[in-house]
Nucleic acid binder design. Structure first.
Length: 408
RNA sequence: GUGGGCGUAGCUCAGUUGGUUAGAGCGCCGGGUUGUGGUCUCGGAGGCCGGGGGUUCGAGUCCCCUCGCCCACCCCA
């Protein structure tokens, strides 16, 4: 074959599509269960919309081109600017808090590796217009709900929670000034991956202060963390006690977070973060929207699929059809088509061979189709306007009217 | 952008010190006679051995270049 998908882009054959849809179904269900409404926006936006928020580094990872109207456009790499734009346009008319979610496809020109391509689907859940810590906990619970629905437990995953205000305040107690704070935060963020991060902290702050920070990372100073308490409390109420752990190493980039921040990891830490989010009270205004507090998270399909595969918990194939309808002899092919039509009209997934084949062969196809039952349309039964219903697992057969065939 | 690993059938891989017509398993297609499948059995299709150049009587195998893929770093909205 001459053509392959572009680097970092994926073909979804039916087997992969089953997985993706299974994950997406869990996302939709969890969000809707918590009263979130689905929205979406354009895949293509003006380049400036994204450039405004992001630095140069990020602009370099944008898929951009000039369209035929000479406009600089970009494929969306994230949802927040679009969300801010949409909320901004109707802010006065929307009841608060705004609880919205979406499952958009994103595009980022990056070097592909395990858990990361150049295109992916990401579940985004946001609450706009609530400053209450209960809302922070609620979005965490929505994220965990979806993962639980996919079969993951507190033995598999952990929500690591921190707070940007707490981080800043603790660093101030060490006399870390505002200018050096970003650097220090970046080092804390890297402590787990980069052995050099410790050294960097020591060089920047001296071994005494660095040690203090490392001790907080080792054992979270929960007694001093007033900023986190309301969120942790609400998490308990949402039944997240086994999932959530305060963790001083969670920083979440350097961007725009203003309060609680959190990431979900697999307990074994064999993968990058499954999800991440936090509070960003200033961002919407800075993007030209209304001055509303906001929180949200993103959960991508790529890492999650890897984890589910590792755990043997990939969504199961529901099969192509419910029943497979088989004519016995050529003269029964017409009646078989009518049976199929009746079944489909009643929303049973039904299929049959559109070819003259023998019964044995047709049953082989039935087994392959994923159907749990076969309907055999033979002259003997059809003369009484009946058919034979065969359970393909047990082999049990019974003669029934077509109307009696139910969804199993 | 930096570093490492790997390219043989749709998939997972074998292929001897360089030696005839490049193999296996799975998958796919077809047979194994009458209205009963999955197992089994027999057969079949499917390869520019990633591409180009070189060494050699002879290259999947050795050398060089190139392309592609994977992994880690960077970054992670």
């Amino acid at each position: 074959m001459r053509f392959k998908p572009l680097t970092g882009f994926r073909d979804f054959y039916p087997a992969e599509m089953v997985i993706r849809r299974g994950i997406e179904a869990a996302w939709h269900r969890a969000a809707q269960n918590a009263g979130f409404e689905e929205f979406d926006g354009p895949v293509l936006e003006s380049f400036e919309l994204f450039a405004a928020k992001s630095g140069e580094e990020i602009a370099g990872q944008l898929y951009t081109f000039t369209d035929k109207g000479d406009r600089q456009v970009a494929m969306r790499p994230e949802m927040t600017p679009t969300l801010a734009r949409m909320v901004g346009a109707r802010a006065n008319g929307l009841p608060k808090p705004i609880k919205w979610y979406c499952v958009p496809q994103f595009f980022r020109y990056e070097r592909p590796q395990r858990g990361r391509g150049r295109e992916f689907y990401q579940w985004n859940v946001d609450v706009i217009g609530s400053a209450d810590p209960a809302s922070d906990a609620e979005v965490i619970s929505v994220a965990v709900d979806a993962l639980k629905a996919l079969g993951l437990t507190a033995d598999d995953i952990v929500v690591r929670l921190n707070d940007r205000r707490f981080l800043s305040r603790m660093l101030k107690t060490l006399d870390v000034d505002e200018a050096t704070e970003p650097e220090v935060l970046a080092s804390i963020d890297k402590l787990e991956r980069d052995p050099a991060a410790v050294k960097k902290l020591e060089e920047r702050l001296g071994s005494k202060r660095a040690e203090k920070i490392l001790s907080w990372c080792e054992r979270f100073p929960i007694d001093e963390a007033d900023e986190l308490k309301p969120v942790l409390e609400a998490c308990e109420d949402f039944g997240l006690g086994a999932f959530v752990e305060a963790d001083f190493r969670i920083v979440r980039g350097l961007a725009y977070y203003t309060g609680p921040v959190w990431e979900i990891f697999d307990r074994a830490r064999s993968l990058r973060a499954i999800a991440g989010g936090g509070r960003y009270d200033e961002l919407i205004k800075s993007l030209g929207g209304p001055d509303l507090p906001a929180i949200g998270f993103g959960m991508g399909d790529v890492v999650l699929t890897e984890l589910l595969r590792d755990k043997g918990k990939l969504p199961e194939d529901p099969g192509r059809v419910d029943v497979f309808v088989i004519p016995v002899g050529d003269e029964m092919r017409g009646p078989a088509r009518r049976v199929i039509t009746q079944l489909r009209a009643r929303s049973l997934r039904a299929d049959g061979p559109n070819a003259a084949i023998k019964l044995g062969k047709a049953l082989k196809l039935a087994a392959q189709s994923g159907a749990t039952r076969a309907v055999i349309v033979g002259p003997d039964e059809w003369s009484n306007t009946q058919v034979k219903l065969r359970d393909l697992n047990s082999g049990d057969e019974s003669v029934v009217n077509v109307e009696e065939i139910e969804r199993s």
